[in-house]
Nucleic acid binder design. Structure first.
Length: 877
RNA sequence: GCGAGAGUGGCGGAGUUGGUAGACGCGCUGGUCUUAGGAACCAGUAUCUUAUGAUGUGGGGGUUCGAGUCCCCCCUCUCGCACCA
């Protein structure tokens, strides 16, 4: 750097400081002006625009993109986004080619609800929300490459999603089948499980029914094994998320067994993980929806069975699978035969048997399964013990609960006396040989139903023709666009199903009048591949530009909420494998490292008169309306209903974006829940002001000594601390994401700078220390650091300067403080030469007065010296 | 019930391989400067204590010269899954 240039810049900056001082009150730095200035600077200079390819190593960091809701950004968003931003800024300073994009998960129900409530078109509502949320994000100073932004409701995105669907159809990875769904007859629409409240429609409060509907599915079960097995290789994922995914896939080993029905050719197939208990099967439980129910039921039982089935069908899936449900059943009048004993066993329907797990039929072994035990007691059915635990003798008459542990087989013919674990294999093999059943693997994971009777989603590109059947929309006709002139009332089913112009189409095969599919995709489909589209967001030949996608993927660091641990993250993994098998990308897994951020929590407050209170409705612990004392509630997740929320806009207005960024990562590590605390925010603001003053109070001194580069080795405690801090912050930020401790160590360095005696500073060392503070903080609080960096006489932006490196030589100390323990208890501390040998150290330690006191008259057993840390004298007695 | 994680001052949290428990911040106490302080700066702040002492990381055992950290048992909390056959 030319010294003339430096003088010029400093000179100009000085006048600037004076003006600022006047306008900013004496004590605080003017974050408003500074943050605006640097956000403009980054924009004009295209600082964060990313180029594909290049010599630098690539680094792709991604936030889970937000839904553009009407409520705008909440304070939970910035925490995760800031964490990613810090990583990105750090990686850029470290010489990586960083991809850091942002976009919008823009299809979804809230847009339709807004349309129903205020008549706004979902598209207009969505794009307006995007506008205002983009402004909010920009105020935080996140270093996104905004040129890659897209919304999933853009017809361009739909185009390529529809194409992926067509390819999946060709590969038989997408198919149509009938399945049971929650159905509200009033609203004429399918409801997601979450939209069913107490068995009723959340909107009209009508009872929800189960209904069979034709639905499109993705064959995710085809990938069940790969999705399961690869969880072992996802070393960069939290164990918790992997456990949840394994649990969700729910692979279990067992066998399928055929039970023949007495007096009928029909066979009932069951899946069981306990073939060892087969001799103890004393009845059969079928799901009420089981296809054989109609043929099995006897004339006498028919009325009762129908009543039961009707009752069960009124229950929604959530209630149906809740543990609270009372176990109920009904006898069908039919009997089937135990394939091993030939014993006749009654066939029941039971409300707890689910048609979509296993085969929808369960062989009931009351002695060894708690549900079957309770069921048998309720309906007075036989209980047959077939496993005796070691050293006990079970009696069906006196059993209080089922015996589910291990033991030895009894009452089991040729298999008596074998341990039940061995019997699983032996009986399964026997069934196999006798063709009575076969070993089988079952998954809890179901194929992914993607049809939604909604308007605001990606149209499924299918045409139904009376003569040609189900015909995919030809590629040249993509995208199938949503019609804009729709009336959304919330009644009478999907608006698309009533939109004649949309529905009516000529069959692509025969040209005859045909009908379009009116369902749209589940919005999870969009979020299953958006991360890949960021590599080439404008590519117009295919969903992905293979070169760009293969350069950027997989995402190196993905950050988002734990609430997506299963659905979104599993679907995204599935889609990546599908895209790989379609030849569109090489990666098999989308996200190498995953960080799940905690929730943002805050204490709730309420008034006995006015209910929950917003923080601004409480002053001095009292309700501002009536003056009653506000009661403090639990600290819990911020939510509108409890009014324990902080508006990020207000926060930024009051303290600035840098303070908001700093606090959200200083209070707790990002994966933990963050407890919001106004005083903590103040503390961070105070710290930034301390940094600001540390620079300005020393500008004169620093100016006199610009040559930091000439420093070598140990010159002072300050230089040592400076380099220790660089090392510590680098280690904390890189891979560990312990931003809170990184910030804490910079605070320590600032405290040391403040503790320097006036007039005794070494200007070059001081300059190095102060510049280091600014550079280390740059990823965390970029605006103030850019400003300070400029005021320190540097041009061209602080990121260009790169990340500081530490000099081990500067950290070498000639003396070190070591702890002296006697029998493991701290007794003294001694200052010794760094390279002291053990014998010498021992001598000094033993000579310490307080040590001598504790070893006096005792025999020294041994002395343990740990280099650089301590010496422990072990004495007897 | 199953799975995962956690339990450390008044509070949020530090504590890479076992090696000075409580970094850093908040709060609190005292001081300096001020017309003033809800600004700034400095000092103090785990508990008990006459201490150069004792105790202390949910409880109880163990391994070790030495345990917040490793092992065993138990308790509590959070999250996820849950009639899964």
């Amino acid at each position: 750097m030319h010294s003339g240039g430096l003088a010029y810049i400093l000179g100009r900056q000085k006048t600037y400081i004076i003006t600022l001082d006047i306008e900013m009150t004496k004590e605080h730095y003017n974050f408003d002006t500074i943050e605006k200035k640097w956000q403009d600077y980054w924009l004009t200079n295209k600082t964060f625009k990313t180029e594909d390819f290049g010599d630098k190593p690539k680094y792709y960091a991604l936030d889970m993109f937000p839904y553009p809701s009407g409520a705008g950004l909440h304070v939970g968003h910035p925490e995760g986004y800031t964490a990613t931003d810090i990583i990105c800024r750090y990686k850029r300073m470290r010489g990586f080619n960083v991809l850091h994009p942002m976009g919008w998960d823009a299809f979804g129900m809230p847009a339709e609800n807004a349309a129903i409530e205020n008549g706004t078109h979902p598209g207009k509502w969505t794009y307006e929300n995007i506008e205002s949320m983009r402004v909010q994000l920009k105020r935080i100073g996140l270093s996104y490459d905004w040129s890659r932004e897209f919304a999933t409701c853009d017809s361009d995105y739909s185009h390529w999603e529809q194409l992926i669907f067509l390819r999946m159809l060709e590969k038989n990875l997408a198919y149509k089948k009938t399945s049971n769904v929650n159905w509200c007859n009033d609203c004429q629409t399918v409801l997601a499980n979450e939209q069913v409240e107490d068995g009723c429609c959340w909107r009209c409060n009508n009872p929800v029914e189960q209904k069979e509907l034709d639905q499109w599915f993705f064959r995710i079960t085809e990938y069940a094994d790969e999705l399961l097995n690869e969880t072992e290789n996802l070393k960069g994922w939290p164990e918790k998320v992997l456990a949840m995914q394994r649990n969700w896939i729910g692979k279990s080993y067992g066998c399928e067994i055929d039970f023949s029905v007495k007096g009928s050719a029909a066979k009932i197939k069951v899946f069981t993980t306990r073939p060892d208990t087969l001799y103890g099967a004393t009845f059969m439980s079928l799901a009420p929806e089981h296809p054989l129910v109609g043929t099995l039921v006897s004339a006498e039982q028919r009325a009762e069975v129908e009543l039961f089935c009707a009752e069960v069908s009124r229950q929604n899936k959530l209630d149906r699978t809740s543990g609270e449900l009372e176990k109920k059943g009904v006898f069908t009048g039919a009997y089937c035969l135990n394939p091993l004993t030939g014993q006749e066993i009654p066939v029941f329907l039971a409300n707890f048997v689910l048609m979509d797990y296993g085969t929808g039929a369960v062989m009931a072994v009351p002695a060894h399964d708690q549900r079957d035990f309770e069921f048998a007691q309720k309906y007075q059915l036989d209980i047959q013990v077939v496993i005796q635990p070691e050293g006990a003798s079970l009696d069906p008459q006196t059993m209080q609960t089922a015996m589910t542990g291990t033991g030895v087989l009894v009452n089991s013919g040729d298999f008596n006396g074998i341990s039940n674990e061995d019997a699983k294999e032996r009986i399964a093999s026997y069934l196999d040989a006798e063709q009575l059943g076969c070993k089988s693997i079952n998954y809890r994971l179901r194929d992914w139903g993607v049809s939604r009777q909604r308007y605001w989603g990606t149209p499924i590109p299918i045409i139904y023709c009376d003569s040609c059947g189900t015909v995919p929309v030809p590629e040249k006709d993509l995208p199938v666009k949503l019609p804009m002139d729709v009336e959304i009332t919330g009644e009478g089913g999907s608006p698309l199903a009533r939109h004649q112009e949309f529905l009516t189409v000529a069959c692509p095969c025969c040209g005859a009048p045909a009908r379009r599919e009116s369902d749209t995709f589940d919005t999870f489909v969009e979020s299953s591949w958006y991360f890949a589209r960021y590599a080439s967001p404008e590519y117009d030949q295919a969903p992905l530009d293979a070169d760009a996608a293969n350069y950027w993927l997989p995402v190196d660091q993905y950050i988002g909420g734990i609430e997506h641990a299963v659905m979104h993250l599993l679907y995204a993994r599935f889609f990546t494998k599908v895209l790989r098998d379609l030849g569109m990308v090489k990666a098999s897994e989308p996200f190498t490292n995953l960080l799940t951020q905690g929730m943002v929590c805050m204490e709730s407050q309420r008034c006995s008169e006015h209910g929950w209170l917003y923080p601004e409705e409480v002053r001095d612990g009292k309700c501002v309306t009536c003056g009653r004392a506000a009661e403090l509630g639990r600290t819990e997740k911020m939510s509108k209903s409890k009014k324990n929320v902080v508006d990020p806009n207000a926060l930024i207005e009051r303290y600035g974006a840098d303070t908001a960024r700093l606090f959200s990562l200083f209070a707790a590590p990002p994966e933990k829940d963050l407890e919001w605390n106004e005083q903590g925010v103040e503390g961070c603001y105070r710290f930034l002001n301390r940094v600001w003053r540390a620079v300005h109070d020393n500008l004169g001194l620093i100016e006199s000594s610009p040559e930091v580069a000439s420093l070598t080795g140990t010159t002072s405690d300050l230089r040592c601390k400076t380099h220790e801090t660089i090392k510590k912050v680098s280690a904390d930020v890189d891979g560990r994401f312990h931003f809170n401790t990184a910030i804490a160590s910079v605070m320590e360095l600032v405290n040391v700078i403040y503790g320097l005696k006036k007039g005794q500073e070494q200007p070059a060392v001081l300059r190095e220390a102060i510049e280091t503070v600014v550079r280390l903080l740059a990823p965390f609080v970029p605006h103030i650091c850019e400003e300070l960096w400029q005021r320190l006489g540097h041009e061209g932006g602080i990121e260009r300067q790169g990340w500081p490196s530490w000099d081990e030589a500067a950290m070498v100390k000639s003396e070190i403080e070591m702890v002296v323990q006697v029998n493991g208890k701290l007794r003294s501390k001694v200052k010794v030469a760094i390279d002291i040998d053990n014998a010498e150290l021992e001598k000094i330690a033993l000579a310490e007065p307080n040590v001598a006191r504790f070893i006096e008259g005792k025999q020294i057993r041994k002395v343990i010296c740990v280099a650089g840390r301590l010496v422990n004298i072990v004495v007897a007695g």
